[in-house]
Design a binder for these strands. Structure first.
Lengths: 206, 206, 206, 206
DNA sequence: TATGAATGAGAGTTCATTCAT
DNA sequence: TATGAATGAACTCTCATTCAT
């Protein structure tokens, strides 16, 4: 443990991320979070007032971080080529470094879908540019110009995000199907990025 | 409600599926399951002896059903063409009809990855044929013959399953990004199947 | 204990009355209420959903009972003579039999004055007759006819209720001042009624 | 606020009086007392060592102040006339200026009757004269001489104190009964004194 | 098969109090 | 004197589970 370096508040956050990832919001126990952080249970409430709020802080911080990463990449991409190369890389790198957060996001997505939607919507509203409109128009434009083969932005997203985002969660099933352990090491990450980029470029570019 | 037609046992199962889908195992409340089934709480324990066991029954029944569907299709496909057309269809049709089960599976996958793996492994062991070996060899064979562009069976699976499986869970995020409601109607299902089939055929076939 | 005769619900109420009377709402402990009722702590919440609600039920039941007693007496009194004889008797008899309730009422009156006011107002609203108007007009009428010496209905009430109601609460102070124990037995009750009736009849009748 | 003029200690006392009056001992929160006093929670314990002790200090200070006022008046009254005029005035004026203290006293009287009794007894013991004996003998003497109509000193006190003391606490009930707001302004105080004096003089003097 | 009542363990949360600075 | 952080005990309330009928 890095009790000395991190403040109690940060240690609580780290421990909570682990706990929420493993057990989801309802399965998470504040006593375990406290033990994991090496502090008294009451400190959780001293700093975060409630389990629910602690959870919200984590979700929102995570979303902010992902969206910030995504934004940076999207801003400098104007062709589908670049976009289809950039997005999987952003997602996969982010969530390979933050696999616990990936799990928490999934939990939240399943249990209260509106929660994450609301957060995204709110962040987009505060943004100076309008990602929703930009993306829709971009896709339409590219399709009309005959650059891409998928006209519906909904399916464009659904073809890009899941293979990038859910690969860490789905891995146990793959392991079962192929009957062997799979290590999420650097090589795996690079291979995954290549495979997804290849898939969506060949699959959606004309 | 079909209180009259269904037995108490079946009504509990139906109600439990809803409850587990919405809240996950830890968030599920047996009182709500009972109310939803229109029976006394104690009956849940009379029929299923524990919340955990009720959960296990549901998970295992679901997995059996999916795998059975998958098996049927896989058995009659010998070319990647057919496989890449068949798999998304099986998955998407199954989980569009059983969206609640999809949610439960995701929950379980995140919270106890080993659980689902074990179930799959066990089922495969009981099968007369060996899907693990068959699939691995099939992919290697196809790659060596230059039919497909992805050599690693792990990534083949990770390119097929997520865009099929997770589209229902990921939808709220897509809605938020595009700022509009998306209806999961028949047209959507057909479009999704087409899009994924198109994606993986063009993306992985040479 | 009368465990056999009373239902668990009634035993909780009885125990709660004792606890609230001794310690007030905030000082009351549900564990002590449970022990006093000879039941499991959880049953309190099974029957009354929350400590606060249990408290409310008691307060409202009490108020209903007092007001009902008062109503009966008031209805058949048309002269100040009879009223000044009746009211002290009603109050003193009721709260001598329910000294614990008296304490609870005082607590509530001090801590959230609006609570009891609201209950009284609500009950009066539901009543067919209008006690507020009747009382005000009665006092004015009597004063104009020269029957009573106090013109303000506010002070009429403040001269009647406190000597009746608060005698049980104030007793410890009296004991301290006179340096002797005072028993609240039947004789004391009768004496008290006589003394108050005498006080307010001579004090307010002309 | 008079943060500058008052010492931290005094500010704590003032804030505590408000808090104890509103919520009673058990409902009072030291964090709220601290916030109200504009100081750190820990200072309460620095100055008063415990919540209970802070409470005790307030109660005892209050009792001392009331009893001192009462003593002054009683000393110079030798006839029931004067006493019946003096006592209501002392009580009503004192508690109209210190309504919060009145509430605290009531709380304490209900929750631990022995506490206040003990304080009074102790103070009387330290006094050079013996109020208990004096009062008892006075009443007996007056009754035997046919000056007053109430022979029992207990009821004499119970006829004087409650209408004076409890008028501030009982007001919400009066408001509810008469369905109108009542302001405790200077006029109300003067009227109340007159009414009580009138009541007990006419009611107990022959 | 079915029910309402009951239970015990443990959840999140609060709070007076203390500690380190 | 003053503070923010820390603590432990206790509190209300919940919930899976069992009992009596």
């Amino acid at each position: 443990m890095n009790k000395k370096q991190d403040s109690a508040q940060q240690r609580i956050l780290k421990s909570a991320v682990k706990e929420f990832a493993k057990h989801g919001f309802w399965g998470a126990r504040s006593s375990r979070i406290a033990k994991g952080a090496g502090i008294n249970k009451a400190m959780i409430f001293y700093y975060f007032s409630s389990k629910e709020n602690l959870y919200r802080v984590i979700i929102e911080d995570t979303m902010k971080a992902v969206l910030e990463d995504v934004r940076k990449f999207i801003m400098k991409t104007d062709s589908p080529d670049k976009l289809f190369e950039a997005l999987p890389e952003v997602y996969i790198r982010f969530f390979s470094k933050n696999q616990l957060l990936a799990k928490i996001m999934i939990h939240d997505l399943v249990q209260n879908p509106d929660h994450i939607s609301a957060i995204i919507a709110k962040m987009f509203k505060q943004a100076s540019f309008k990602p929703q409109i930009i993306f829709k128009e971009m896709v339409r434009d590219w399709y009309e110009k005959g650059i891409i083969s998928e006209s519906d932005p909904v399916h464009v997203i659904l073809n890009i995000m899941p293979p990038s985002l859910f690969c860490f969660i789905g891995l146990p099933m793959v392991e079962a199907v192929l009957d062997r352990k799979i290590d999420i090491n650097d090589k795996f990450i690079e291979d995954r990025i290549k495979s997804v980029v290849n898939l969506i470029k060949r699959g959606m570019l004309k």
